[in-house]
Simulated scan of single mutants.
Amino acid sequence: MHESAVQGAVHDAGRAAGLTNRATCHTLRHSFAIHLLEAGTIRATQTLLGHKNVRTTMIYTHIVDRGPLGVLSPLDH
């Protein structure tokens, strides 16, 4: 499948879902990264996204509101 077909399908799905902002494949990448970081998987996120430096992965942590590493404290359970 050509990448433009995937991009078009994501855009159309976002529009069909009634999203007000444009949906892109990169939007899905960001969402995927945020969910992984919320689960406390910084190293796995770095590997899956292909970041050579963990500092690139850490850029996403400003969105995660569970501390600097995106990990829940055991006391929060």
Rank of each mutant, 00 (worst) to 15 (best):
H2L: 10
H2R: 12
E3C: 04
S4E: 12
S4D: 14
A5Y: 04
A5E: 15
Q7R: 01
V10T: 05
H11A: 10
D12K: 00
D12F: 00
G14K: 01
R15W: 02
A16D: 14
A17I: 08
A17K: 05
A17H: 06
A17L: 15
A17W: 13
A17E: 09
G18A: 00
G18I: 06
G18K: 03
L19Y: 11
T20A: 12
T20E: 15
T20G: 03
N21T: 12
R22Y: 12
A23F: 02
C25Q: 01
C25M: 10
C25N: 07
H26S: 06
H30R: 15
H30N: 14
H30F: 09
S31I: 03
F32S: 09
F32G: 01
L36F: 10
L37H: 05
L37M: 07
E38V: 01
E38N: 14
E38H: 08
A39E: 15
G40P: 10
T41H: 02
T41I: 08
I42D: 15
R43Q: 11
Q46R: 06
L48F: 03
L49E: 01
L49V: 02
G50N: 05
H51Y: 13
H51M: 10
H51N: 13
R55W: 06
T56S: 03
T56R: 01
T57L: 01
M58A: 10
M58E: 15
Y60D: 13
T61I: 05
H62K: 14
I63K: 01
I63W: 10
V64E: 08
V64W: 08
D65H: 04
G67E: 14
G67R: 11
G67I: 07
P68H: 04
L69N: 13
L69H: 14
G70S: 00
G70T: 00
G70Y: 01
V71R: 11
V71M: 10
L72S: 09
S73N: 06
P74W: 06
P74N: 03
L75R: 05
D76N: 12
H77G: 08
